[in-house]
Structures are given as C-alpha cells and as structure tokens.
Design a binder for these strands. Structure first.
Length: 192
DNA sequence: CTTTGGATCGTCT
DNA sequence: GACGATCCAAAGG
C-alpha cells in the first residue's frame, strides 16, 4: 500500500507543531483505517486544560513518557478518548484525536457504533472515533510505530487548515489550539 | 431544526 | 464529594 508509517522523530517536536501536521494522516488499526480531520493540542507545561497541568498522576503518566505513543483516558463515566504523545521525553504534551474520515473497515465501524446513521457519524468526535476503532484501556501506551499506526499517504497535505478554541473545556478556553480541515463533513459538529 | 438533560464512574482534592 | 478533553435521545419550535 502507499502508506508510510511516521517515524518517532515526527512526534518529538512541540505539540503545537505536531498537531496541524497530523491532519490528513492515516490512523490504521488492523483492517480499520481513517484519515485524521480534526485534532486538539494539549501542552502540559502551560496549558490549564491539560490533564498533565498539575503534574504527573497515575492516570496521565503516559503523557510524560516517550513521544509517538497513545495516551487513552476514560471520561464521563462511559467514554474513551485517544491522544498522541508529543514532545521530548518528560515534556507532557499530547494531541487529542477528535475526528477522522473512515477509509477501511466501515462495515465494522457501523457494527460497533449502533447509534450511527451515516458515515459522518462514525468518527466525528473523540469518543466516537475510539468506539469505531475499538480503542480503550488496552491501548494506553501503545506505540504508534507498531500498532495502531499513524502514516502519511501519497496524497497532498491538507491546504485549508482552520484553527479555533478547543471544545468541551472550562479552562484555557482562550487558546486557539484546535485544528481541523475546513469544510470536511467528518469534523465533529459539522453543519452544512 | 435547536435545546436540554440523563447516563455513569474513575480520578483527584 | 465534585466533576469531567462526551454522546445521544427526547422534547420543544
């Protein structure tokens, strides 16, 4: 296939550099794949919305580990969300994977996501994406150079990247650290 | 179409 | 004991 798995060096940069670069990349897990269309950056050192802002705890320890690994967490009593750990080791940065356009394994995704009516309902939100891909507790710390993988394909990079404030947070609401592909119908909350 | 409230529990104070 | 980096069904216009 025409995908090349991203090297660890891709992730060993400031989280604000990595986040927009993840748009258009392909998340692949077994027979499932999707193109990332929306992300949010969380930088532990100076970001009051980050899980790592208050220092290391058992839950967020993965954020302090090596870049290029998944940080998954459970929230609202029922949902899992997945992040990509970024930055030098010991620097707690992560990029939340908020939405993707399903590419392969769409039938499996519909099976896992009973509430989805259309293809745009499958991965148009951080918890939806995890449900569609079957990501959860077992994947905290998973190495993205092994499985699941994040890869670049042969196509052109997204040209129209939008930025704005992040969704669903109560602190750090002034930081424009959400990035998405403008007009893509698979972005969460898309209207139009 | 938009708005509202319920579900549900691990985590940290 | 309070509160989420959310989702969805139901109710209201």
């Amino acid at each position: 296939m025409s995908e090349s798995v991203l090297p660890r060096s891709f992730y060993e940069r400031d989280v604000l550099e990595v986040a927009p670069d993840l748009l258009g990349k392909v998340l692949r897990y077994g027979a499932l794949s999707g193109r990332i269309v929306e992300v949010e950056a969380y930088r532990g050192s100076d970001d009051p919305a980050s899980h790592a802002f208050g220092g290391m705890t058992p839950r967020n320890a993965t954020m302090f580990g090596p870049a290029g690994h998944l940080y998954t967490y459970f929230t609202y009593g029922m949902h899992w969300c997945a992040n990509v750990v970024c930055g030098p080791q010991g620097t707690p940065g992560a990029v939340l994977l908020r939405a993707a356009r399903p590419l392969d394994g769409i039938d499996v995704m519909f099976t896992r996501r009973a509430a989805a009516r259309r293809e745009t309902d499958l991965c148009s939100g951080p918890a939806k994406l995890c449900q569609a891909f079957g990501l959860g507790a077992d994947h905290d710390g998973a190495d993205l150079t092994v499985a699941p993988t994040m890869a670049a394909d042969a196509g052109p990079d997204p040209t129209d990247v939008a930025t704005g404030v992040r969704i669903g947070i109560t602190r750090g609401t002034d930081l424009p650290w959400r990035y998405w592909i403008r007009g893509d119908p698979h972005v969460s909350g898309f209207r139009g």
